[in-house]
Structure formats: structure tokens, C-alpha cells
């Protein structure tokens, strides 16, 4: 059993400040995860050199991998800190090497491991990821949705907007406005709903604007890092076909 957990953390005091590294060693306990390790540090924020430092700032909330808040780079991989079990990391990499924590690189850093993922919520606005109901009032039962459709799109509805797919996608970068895999998959979810389908054109149209689905380079990293195992590449491919047939129809009908 290892005696301690060694963490190397990339820190940054505020959005425009220069990043720096700090290392910490904390006592090992079984069943810990990266969040619980960070919680131990803040109860006694002392660097490896013995220097007392400011507690590390990070974002977390549910601690059961459903809220999406605690996504960060852990040994270079974008994933949720709460479900990154120390024992598993040790099994893969050994306990000697430090566990490296960095903020996601595709989003502006707020402080330390905390980033601003507002762009993802803005992208949901761009693709109009909602159903334009007339109102929230009760007008009785009515909808029928097949089990098959529900089972097909339910996994998409578990997307936590966590940012892992954006981080892993080479086409999401400073030069592009690519809306990323998760927003494209949301279009499939909403277009599959019987009322959502009545408004599918507005979403398809949104997908062919600047930063839209054509900017996907099919690197397929998104699918590999999605913590909810959403088959993002399959949903993007499906939406690509939908968008193409929409564009063709538009072309033919416009004349």
C-alpha cells in the first residue's frame, strides 16, 4: 500500500496571470478520488517544500459524475475529478509518479483548476436546443414515443455539458468557432421528440452556420473521452446526413 499521494497541480491566480506549478503530498487512504484528495489539501494547504500556500481552487458539486462541474485534465486526460479514483490511477501508472492536475485548456481559466465553460451554454443557444412549447400549462396527455426512439436518444439526454469532448476535439481551438460534438448531439435528441421534430428545420439551419457541423474533422476523440459513453461520432454522422438532405431540399425548393 502506498504511503502517500503525490499531486502536481498547475495553478493560476487569476484569468490573466501566469500559471505556475505546485506539488503536494498527502497521506494515502483506500477509495480516494481526486476531489477527496483536493479536500484533504485544503484542510492543510502546505506545499511539498513545507511552505503554506493558498488552498487550491477547483469546481465540483455532485461528486457522483452527474453534474459535470469537476472536469479537469488528469494526467493529460479530460475527465471528472470525482470519478478519477486514486487506486485506479495507481494501478495504471504506479504510485511513484505524481498525479498531474491541470485546468481544461480550451476554456478561459478563472483560477487554478476552475475554468469558464459559458461558451458551451451559448452553443446550446445557437442550435436552439429547446422545444418551443406554447406554455407550461396542462392540456392533458397525448404524446406517444416509441420505446425504440426513447432508448436511442436517452443516452444523449445524459450529456452533462462537462466539456470533455470539447477539450479532446482538435477542431475546437482558438482559431475556430466550432460548436463541438455535444451541441450537435443535442440537436438529434430534440429532433427525435414528436414536438421537437416540428421545429427541426430551425436546428438544422443552425448547424450549417459558421462553426457548425461541417467543422467536424472526424478525429473521433469526442467519443473516446465522453464520460457517459455517448456515441457522439455516430450522432454527428447522423446529423450530417440530416443536414445534407436539408440543405439539398432548401437548394431545390428555393428556385
Amino acid at each position: 500500500m502506498p504511503a502517500y499521494i503525490h499531486l502536481k497541480i498547475k495553478r493560476q491566480n487569476e484569468p490573466n496571470a501566469k500559471p505556475y506549478w505546485q506539488e503536494f503530498k498527502i497521506p494515502y487512504n483506500p477509495n480516494m478520488n481526486v476531489v477527496s484528495a483536493l479536500m484533504v489539501i485544503r484542510q492543510n494547504p502546505v506545499e511539498i517544500s513545507g511552505k503554506v500556500v493558498d488552498p487550491v481552487v477547483w469546481e465540483c458539486n455532485c461528486l457522483e459524475e452527474v453534474c459535470g462541474a469537476c472536469t479537469m485534465l488528469i494526467n493529460g486526460m479530460p475527465r471528472q475529478a470525482c470519478s478519477a479514483l486514486i487506486d485506479n490511477i495507481f494501478k495504471e501508472k504506479g504510485s511513484e509518479k505524481p498525479i498531474i492536475l491541470e485546468p481544461l485548456s480550451k476554456f478561459p481559466t478563472i483560477r487554478d483548476l476552475m475554468v469558464d465553460r459559458k461558451v458551451m451554454f451559448d452553443n446550446l443557444k445557437k442550435v436552439k436546443a429547446w422545444i418551443p412549447v406554447d406554455g407550461t400549462w396542462d392540456y392533458g396527455s397525448g404524446l406517444r414515443i416509441s420505446e425504440e426512439t426513447q432508448q436511442l436518444v436517452y443516452p444523449i439526454s445524459r450529456c452533462m455539458t462537462c466539456g470533455a469532448c470539447m477539450e479532446a476535439c482538435p477542431n475546437v481551438n482558438k482559431k475556430s468557432k466550432f460548436i463541438g460534438p455535444s451541441s450537435i448531439a443535442q440537436v438529434r435528441l430534440l429532433n427525435a421528440h414528436p414536438i421537437g421534430a416540428m421545429h427541426k428545420k430551425m436546428r438544422l439551419k443552425a448547424l450549417i452556420q459558421k462553426g457548425g457541423i461541417h467543422e467536424c474533422g472526424n478525429a473521433q476523440n469526442c467519443k473516446r473521452v465522453c464520460p457517459k459513453n455517448i456515441n457522439l461520432t455516430r450522432h454527428i454522422a447522423y446529423m450530417n446526413r440530416e443536414v445534407n438532405s436539408y440543405a439539398l431540399r432548401q437548394f431545390l425548393e428555393e428556385d
Binding site: W137, R144, Y154, L189, G196
Partner: peptide
């Protein structure tokens, strides 16, 4: 009434074989 409104707004509830 609340559940049916949520269904209309897009919640993917599990379905029976009849939908």
C-alpha cells in the same frame, strides 16, 4: 398535468411497448 407538460417539453421518460 405537470408530468405531461414536462413530457411535451422534451423529457425522455421510459416508455411502454405502446409508447
Amino acid at each position: 398535468g405537470i408530468i405531461y407538460a414536462m413530457e411535451r417539453m422534451g423529457v425522455m421518460f421510459n416508455r411502454t411497448p405502446e409508447g
